[in-house]
Structure formats: C-alpha cells, structure tokens
Design a protein around this nucleic acid. Structure first.
Lengths: 134, 134
DNA sequence: ATATCTGCAAAAGATTTGCAAGGAG
DNA sequence: CTCCTTGCAAATCTTTTGCAGATAT
C-alpha cells in the first residue's frame, strides 16, 4: 500500500471528524487542502483502508450511504431520526455487550468477525428541542 | 391505509421469504403473480408498511441496499461476507442482549427506539466449504 | 523501472419525484 | 365521489468501472 498525499489527507480528515462522514462529506473536507482530489480517489482509498482494517465502514439509519469511522475499536452508534446525526456511544464496557451478543449466537456453525450495534432514536439536542416546544 | 391486491402480494412475499430480500428481490417474487407491478409500488408500499411498524427496514454488510424483514421482533442479523446471505439469529434471550446494550448507553440525554445488532462473518455453508477445501 | 494510484468520464445501480389514470373506501 | 394508490418515465443520488497519465517505492 502506497503512501500518497491524497491518502494522508483522507486519513487526516477522517481522524479529525467525529461525525462519521459519508464519502461525499469526506470529499468536501479534503478538498479544502486538495482542490483537485476526485471523489473516486476517496472511494478507492477508503476501500483500501477498510481492507487493511485501518477504518470501519457501516451504514446506519434510513440513509443508504457508506459512512466511515476512524475509530475501529468496538463501540455503539446512535442515529438520530430527526436530524440524521450519528454519534458514538463509548462505553467502558463494550466487552460485556459483545460478550452478551456472542452468547446469543448458537455458535460453532457460523463465524463472527465483526459486531455492529446500531441504535435509532433521538439525539440529546433533538430531545431538548422537543421538550422546549412542549 | 388502503388494502390493495399489490400490497397484499408484497406482504405475502415478504412473509414467505426468510431471506431478508432487497426491494429488487421482492419485485421479482411478486411479479410471479402480478406481472405488471412496478418497482415503484414496491418502494412506496414498503415505505408505508415501515411507517406503521408492519415491517423492519435495514442495511447490512457491504451492499448499500435496503432489506426488509417481516419479523419485527428484536433479533440479530448475520451477514456472510462470502456469499452475501443474511440470516436471522433468533435467540431465546434477545431481551438480555437489549438489556446489556441499554445498560451501556449513558441514558437520560438521548432516546432509543430501535436496536439493531449486525454481525459480519461467514455463514455455516461457507465455513463448511472452506473446511472442505483445506 | 514498474506496479500502484489518481483523475476524468462514463456506466451501473439504487432510490425518489411528478403526474395522469385507476381503484378502494 | 373522493382521495389514495399505481404505473410509467424521468430525475437524482450513490457507487463502480475503464483507462491514460502520474508517481511512490
């Protein structure tokens, strides 16, 4: 895998963002420094990164677009069905959650490499907003 | 919500399938009895059904397409990265898993309506196939 | 030097929108 | 009878593919 200015910029942008950006959003961010970078390069680079486990790709909520996360440690994602924001839920104890999930799997016959937990609901801002309007 | 032959056919097809079909797949199935049904009708009907909680929509694995599930009870989905099959993992104790997940959420500030647990790995057939080739 | 990566353009795939005709309530 | 639903077509959005030139190693 080659190290290019584009790839470094993509990784930097993803690391800097806590927003689980879509490909399009990453494109926007990287263009600030690399005006000529193509969307295609974003797609291919992220695909490469995912292949070597540098980043995590997922789809959440009612938006069928890939989102990327620089943080590959196990954690929970929350999708706000009001504003669309995706937030991390970092728990001290994701291990216990993973354990409980693995315990529910009949085992032996199938293999599990990756566990994604997605919650859908309202983020704290949207809960607050609703409370004010009530 | 109106009851039409098309909608009944869509619900029947979805109920009959344990494959978590995509919109395109549902279209194929329903066309057996309703050759003239349009893809658009499938989209709109499923959207309506989801709105009233009749079906569950999700996206899993590396295929960015909506999948639908007639079974709206909480359960785990497993995606096979080899063959693409999506299977249900019905555990007696999804309640315990849900409990453990809710316990990990800091609470009060955000709302959780729905919990999706997605596993990625190999299905039993693909595990067997690999074992035979080894 | 050479295999990989980039950027452009086009193709492919998935979902949504607009509208006129049809059918359920 | 009226409003919701259907089917068609086109538009939009997202992702993939093909290829020629550039570049990291």
């Amino acid at each position: 895998m080659r190290v290019t200015p584009q790839r470094l910029a993509i990784l930097d942008a993803l690391r800097a963002s806590r927003q689980h950006p879509t490909v399009e959003e990453i494109h926007e961010m990287v263009r600030a420094d690399h005006p000529a970078i193509s969307l295609n390069t974003i797609y291919k680079s992220l695909d490469t990164f995912e292949g070597v486990g540098l980043v995590h790709r997922f789809v959440i909520g009612d938006r069928a677009s890939y989102r990327y996360d620089f943080d590959t440690r196990g954690h929970i994602h929350h999708y706000c069905r009001q504003c669309g924001k995706v937030s991390d839920i970092h728990t001290e104890d994701f291990g216990a959650v993973a354990e409980s999930i693995r315990g529910a799997v009949p085992g032996e016959c199938l293999e599990v490499d990756q566990i994604d937990v997605h919650l859908v609901g309202l983020c704290s801002e949207c809960v607050d907003a609703r409370r004010e309007n009530a």
